[in-house]
């Protein structure tokens, strides 16, 4: 198992979990339009496959919010 801090909560995930798998496990909505922050780097959907998550990583999902009306 490896520990990841996802959206502020530290939880255990299976070893070698990929970012797309994590996105599915966390039920992220419209993942194609979500920016993911891993530690201090930002990734768009195009690059999710390139990210190798490791024990102790901090992950945040940044959502588009367009309203203001």
């Amino acid at each position: 198992m490896m520990k990841l801090t996802v959206s502020g909560e530290t939880k255990e995930y299976k070893d070698g979990i990929s970012l797309p798998e994590l996105i599915e496990a966390e039920k992220v909505q419209t993942p194609e339009y979500v920016t993911v922050s891993v530690n201090d780097d930002l990734y768009g959907a195009r690059d999710f496959g390139k990210v190798a998550l490791k024990d102790g990583d901090t992950i945040e999902f940044l959502y588009f919010m367009g309203g203001g009306c």
Binding site: F64, M65, G66, G68
Partner: peptide
């Protein structure tokens, strides 16, 4: 940005 019960 704001929507539903969320804001940023």
């Amino acid at each position: 940005g704001i929507i539903r019960f969320q804001g940023q």
